[in-house]
Amino acid sequence: MSQEIAVIGSPDFTTGFRLAGVRKFANVADDEKDDRLDDAVRETLDDEEVGIVVMHDDDLSHLSRAVRNDVETSVEPVLVTLGGGTGSGNLREQIKRAIGIDLMED
């Protein structure tokens, strides 16, 4: 079972997670996101130790269509996005995908 958390994003975004103890990270500067973000995400998805990938919601728009599809449909590791006005519906879907059940069924 994968137990590591990985964070991908700008150095400003990843620093807080690193200070909190996250050991796996990929710093991708804002001006390099169109060139390097796909590779960083692919490497992290292929890492068998990673169970959760954290990214900023705005960074998803910098991913190619294929990589974006991979992270959005990935069960393990599961992608959790933060910021960018992520609504509770999106968080609900992320939790459901991560644990396999909907905790907030109507």
Rank of each mutant, 00 (worst) to 15 (best):
D38S: 04
E43Q: 02
D34K: 11
T73K: 09
V67Y: 14
G89L: 07
N69V: 07
D39A: 02
I95C: 01
D59E: 08
A20K: 06
S10N: 06
D106E: 11
E43P: 01
T86V: 15
H56N: 12
A29E: 00
A66R: 15
N69S: 12
S61T: 13
D58R: 06
T86G: 11
A6K: 01
R42E: 04
V54R: 00
R92L: 14
D35T: 06
I52N: 08
P11Y: 03
D106M: 08
L37K: 00
A98K: 09
S2M: 06
E49V: 10
V50A: 04
V28T: 00
K24I: 11
V28W: 00
M1F: 12
I99Y: 01
N69E: 15
H56T: 09
G83C: 07
L91E: 03
E4D: 14
E48G: 04
T73A: 12
G51P: 11
V41W: 02
V78C: 06
S74H: 07
A20R: 14
I52P: 06
I5L: 09
N27G: 06
M104I: 03
P11K: 00
M55Y: 09
T73N: 14
V22R: 03
N69A: 13
L19S: 10
V67M: 03
E4Q: 09
D39H: 01
G87I: 11
L63D: 03
I8Q: 01
L103E: 11
D47E: 15
R18K: 14
L19F: 13
G51R: 08
L19P: 15
G100V: 11
E32C: 08
R65S: 15
D59L: 04
E72T: 07
Q3W: 14
K96C: 05
L37T: 01
D38T: 03
A40W: 00
V78S: 08
G84I: 06
A40G: 00
I99D: 08
S74F: 02
D12E: 10
G89S: 13
L19A: 13
P77I: 04
M55F: 09
R92H: 14
S64H: 13
L103P: 02
L82I: 15
V53I: 13
G84W: 08
S10Q: 02
R18V: 12
V80N: 12
I95M: 01
V71G: 10
R68G: 07
V67Q: 10
A20F: 12
L60T: 05
Q3A: 07
D57V: 10
M104G: 08
